[in-house]
Amino acid sequence: MRRLTAARAVLVLTGALLLTYAAAVAPTPMFGGREDGRSDRPVTAEPGSPPRPAKAEPEESPRPDAEPFPPAGKAFIGVMTDKGPHDFAVLDAFTAAAKHQPQVMLFSASWNVDTFDRTLFDRISNRGMLPMLGWEPWDYRVDKAAREKKLPTREIDQIRSHQPAYRLSRITAGDFDPYLRSWAEGIRSLGYPVAIRLAHEMNGDWYPWSEASNGNRPGEYVQAWRHVHDLFRAAEVTNVTWVWSPNASWDGSLPKLAGLYPGDHYVDWVGITGYYGIGAYTQYRSFDSIFGPTISEIRAFSRKPLVITETGASDATGRKAEWITEAFRALPRHRDILGLIWFEVDKELDWRIVSSPAVTRAFATAVADARYRFSWSPELLPRTKLDD
């Protein structure tokens, strides 16, 4: 009996030592626990000891999603002036006449001379407007010189569209990459959203980035667009809304848009340029007759939100105020149109809303509607998908 008891004592002592070692040294099993070795089970107090309060794990407050721009059911009013952010005199006159603060300002920059200038973007943003850059791969001075000679419109088109230095193939080949990279880095540094309307009205033949001019070939426009977009992506630029903006088709003579579309992965907003009161639109044509066919064509290959990126009306037939009133009656029926940018410029014809008291009243009355009354701020996130 004494030998058996001693053996048992040795076994008990050995077991106790092993349990003590396991509790102090051995890692906590993963099964039923956490990866950091801390149990998810509640802590129980020793018998007879006072209860210990549970220690709450620190939790991060969920970050609310950014509010969309424009808000659901709303549409923005934008403006483009001759001098853009370099001089706000025309903007101030437009704002006073419209009795409305525009939420977007479109301005142009030419690849031949314009380097990135943060001041221009900040001036627009500080005025409570989303900056939209009309980025044009050409030498705009060729166009300016031709206009100063007062040449016929089609002759000006032919002169300015022939600029071999800015052929699409050169963009894709990377010839402009250092320039593009400087803009990408500058725009990334802004820290707030901007829109880029790159190489607009590509379906015409009046710009050197058109496939119908300047020795360009079919397919090269999409390649050039994607090259620019991919360069920005490689530079980790995430604050750009990319705007692809063809001209409205009017007589079936322009090329089909599907072959010029870079794809939904490369485009955030689809814009359309269209005017009333010039060329094919000298006779009265409604908003829907000008933009409707192009909208239908676009909807065959993309469901991206639409923006009227450039529009205006002349008083060539004395119906400018009427057209404005009718256009803004039609606009709410197009729930996929997020906004409209007015061309507030006296160029070729006077497109401005300040051209006459009747026109001013018509525009101010139209934009007084509640669907256009909201503010832009840098914290808003541009809407890139249509509501279901």
Rank of each mutant, 00 (worst) to 15 (best):
Y281E: 13
A145F: 14
E236K: 08
P47W: 07
F76T: 00
W376G: 08
M80D: 00
K150A: 12
R63P: 14
P357K: 15
E379S: 07
R303D: 13
P71N: 13
A89N: 06
P164Q: 07
M129N: 06
W244H: 15
F76A: 01
G219M: 08
M132D: 07
A98R: 04
H162L: 06
G204Y: 00
F328D: 07
R319Q: 15
P102K: 12
P293H: 08
T282K: 13
R141G: 12
S377Q: 04
F328C: 04
A98T: 12
A54G: 14
W323H: 10
K144V: 03
V113Y: 12
T14P: 08
N216M: 00
A358R: 09
R160W: 04
Y284M: 07
P193I: 01
R299L: 05
P246R: 03
G279D: 07
V12T: 08
A75G: 06
A330G: 03
E236L: 01
T317K: 03
A93Q: 15
R170A: 09
P71L: 04
S249V: 09
F363W: 02
I341T: 07
E211Y: 03
E220D: 08
K320G: 03
I187L: 02
Y192H: 09
A45K: 15
T365D: 04
V240G: 02
F363N: 00
L349D: 08
D92G: 07
F31E: 14
L91E: 10
N203S: 05
I272Y: 04
F94D: 08
E35K: 03
A75Y: 05
R217W: 06
E67R: 12
